[in-house]
Design a protein around this nucleic acid. Sequence first.
DNA 1: ATCTTACAAGACAGACCTGTATCGCGCAAG
DNA 2: CTTGCGCGATACAGGTCTGTCTTGTAAGAT
Lengths: 196, 196
Amino acid sequence: MDTTVRRERSARDRILDTASALFYREGYHAVGVDAIVARSGVAKMTLYRHFPSKDDLIAAYLERSNTEYWEWFQSGIAAVEDPRAKLVAAFEAVAKLATSALCLGCTFQAAASEFPELEHPGHQVVLAHKRRVLECLAGFAREARLRDPDGLAAQLMLLMDGAWAAARVFGPGNYAGSVGEAARALIEAHASMSAT
Amino acid sequence: MDTTVRRERSARDRILDTASALFYREGYHAVGVDAIVARSGVAKMTLYRHFPSKDDLIAAYLERSNTEYWEWFQSGIAAVEDPRAKLVAAFEAVAKLATSALCLGCTFQAAASEFPELEHPGHQVVLAHKRRVLECLAGFAREARLRDPDGLAAQLMLLMDGAWAAARVFGPGNYAGSVGEAARALIEAHASMSAT
DNA sequence: ATCTTACAAGACAGACCTGTATCGCGCAAG
DNA sequence: CTTGCGCGATACAGGTCTGTCTTGTAAGAT
């Protein structure tokens, strides 16, 4: 039983590892099931036993990407206590990642582009992911007692997704390094009492 | 000669019209040449005479989208004289378009996602487009004598691409309406003399 | 009137796609 | 030892993809 579970996880994880590398780098339609099967050294039937269809595999990949995202996000703000400083730290982490050589943008954005129908299972995972990020930012803004926390969270989300988009379009040498300073400016603007 | 040109343009434009609708709505890999041929009422050979390959068609579609983008952009700031007000007006136009029912995000972002290799002819058009937008914003920032015009332009680009991304992910009911206010805040931050 | 050219329609080739079926192996449980 | 099963390998079915080729037609040019 123990070994059974270990082996099962091993096969499933190998598939998801390969799917992550290929989907992220080349896109969803561009990568066929055969390519994932070949590179992961797995039988095709094994893949289709764990994931009934390619769409299910994509959804599972996006779910795993979601948990990895939150691990990365939490690690970026772990050392910080103050909620307002957490926001700043988060966007410094975004700036760092978006300008790194490994970053190819946001795989959720890419999924939303390739599966535009909101009802698609992959797009549903994307929506849930982005909504949760938005709520997390709004929560920090609320804890920090900033003005209009939901509006600020929306503005910060625009910055974050803009950074991922810049990474995808321009590659490593992009201007997403500005996202930290921009976030600070928007947070600052929501601390002051300007009425507008 | 006159009619020849007229008929040639007509066929070519019908192809590009159909390609625009399908590529924008469903994506590049998801739309086959056969679908474009069928919907545009054009012979396959006619398409391949005007565009040697699908990649060439995609590049041509992106070129046309680029000119349409600039027509839209110029019309949004035509009534404004002051360069700083032009920036604000541009981002109010972005807010309006990104939250409209017709908007499905930025077709250039989608192209960059589906053709990640920077050398791809489609990706090259995307890079040229985004660079030109960036330079245009930087030019306005410079004319407005704002502090660090290039840095401000980068921050504004993040906002704009974030708005398009939100439109693609969330559909018409998204939070890109905040992009106008966010842009104003960033511009304001670059007008003051805070040192940072 | 003939010639050229753009075009529509459709068949076709070869590759690739998703998803299924079959066979054999190795290993763990009973 | 035998039974069950997860797995690898491979072939296959049916469809779709890009790109080519052929045939027939209509209209302008000479």
